[in-house]
Design a protein around this nucleic acid. Structure first.
Lengths: 240, 240
DNA sequence: GTGTTCTGAAGTGTACACACTTTGTCGAGA
DNA sequence: TCTCGACAAAGTGTGTACACTTCAGAACAC
């Protein structure tokens, strides 16, 4: 979006710089990697990708280098950049780490969050709950993540937020499928409310227990969600 | 080092590519950022840095983009790359996250590590302990990190290892100063052994408690270490 | 038929060119 | 003295050039 609001010179000057390419390109490729729009372990052709995004290889490579550190892209020297593998063990590993950080999240929130922020959290989630019929899996996943990130933010530790966001991006593909399960959806609504209630009561241990149950269930369901995910990547529409 | 073991063409060809520049450059800049060889919030001149490292700006920028994601460098559009700030709250935040992940670390290790790996861990640390007189703070910090990373690795979760390594890089500057404290050194040796013993006994709760005490003390000491750190950055030799 | 070497195309890795942005300096005007 | 604007220098952002690597397939030997 935002087009190219740039003063045009008469001569078709070579390379009139398109502002902020790297960030746009970075966001675009990140989205593609998160959603496995590249097939797992597929080599990414820089020239092609640059052409698609309407920029040169330079900003594309800078963005790809960032994504390597984020774990969304891998790099093989002299071969090129590749989409991350679809690695079930790795995904379980990420769920494990996430569970640990979410635990810290509620602990800190229970101790430090203001009453107002906690009230806002409940309002937020009640709002989502009220609108649930109108939401598709994608939107609901987004709200779900937002709920968790809000709690993390209430603890006043920005690094915790950053890491959770990074992990969320890497497991979003699986979680979105999980959340399509109607049963899972219902339990999620209840579990989130239970967490929020525990925070409101400043009951740290209960908050941890609720969060633990909530995430624990996620891990258990992750395996079937991953199967479904693989089918979608490799079988496309046929999977449904 | 490593010179240029490359077949020389007769003509002084422009740009005979130096293999794997990005990784070398990345490692070099990372080390500089970790050790605050750039002053906090100092702008990093790409041209100058490239010249120092003997490469062009391209690999330097790719490396810097990676380091931005790692949190060791910041980027202000149209201004350039900057050294990360020296932010006490952020460092405390990182210690907090680290404590949470180290807890997970020992939990997983207590459940999953083989007896052999645990025995190796104890041997390793006893070896370090035996040589302690010969080690400076830098080397000891390195061994200390290795101890913790070994435990994380025993849990079989590579992502956990990755994140701990990333955090370690960002707090290493402070931890190295902490470890200079003779009293701290002694307690570290004992605490590590206590953790290892608990793992050997497969006593998960005790392992968590030991780890928790160990890291908890670290956080408390971090504040004074940060003061000292600031003095070294801005006062250099005078600080001692 | 199988293995080996050659060759060319495709594509990465890095240097470099150049436009644009930012910032500091100097001088004019109030 | 202070403010403002022009100007210049420094330095970033991105496009492009080109050497090098990899890989597939042809040509060839056995």
């Amino acid at each position: 979006m935002a087009g190219t609001p740039r003063k045009k010179t008469i001569k078709a000057a070579p390379a009139p710089r398109a502002a902020d390419s790297v960030n746009r390109v970075y966001a675009a490729i990140q989205r593609m990697a998160v959603n496995f729009e590249f097939r797992p372990e597929q080599r990414i052709n820089e020239v092609e990708l640059a052409a698609t995004l309407g920029v040169s290889r330079t900003p594309v490579r800078e963005a790809l280098n960032r994504l390597v550190i984020e774990g969304l892209i891998t790099l093989v020297p002299n071969k090129g950049f590749y989409c991350r593998p679809f690695d079930a063990e790795q995904i379980i590993g990420l769920f494990e780490v996430r569970a640990s950080l979410e635990r810290l999240s509620v602990e800190l929130a229970a101790e430090r969050a203001s009453d107002v922020r906690i009230a806002e959290l409940m309002d937020f989630w009640n709002g989502v709950r009220a609108n649930r019929a109108a939401m598709d899996a994608e939107e609901l996943t987004s709200r779900d993540e937002e709920f968790h990130i809000r709690i993390a933010a209430m603890g006043g530790n920005p690094e915790l937020v950053r890491m959770l966001e990074s992990i969320n991006a890497r497991i979003r593909f699986v979680r979105r499928i999980e959340i399509e399960n109607p049963l899972r959806r219902t339990t999620t609504f209840d579990e989130h409310l239970a967490i929020a209630e525990a925070l409101k009561a400043r009951d740290r241990d209960r908050a941890v227990a609720c969060m633990s149950d909530h995430i624990g269930i996620s891990v258990a369901d992750a395996v079937s969600a991953m199967k479904e995910g693989l089918a979608r990547i490799y079988m496309g529409r046929m999977a449904s």
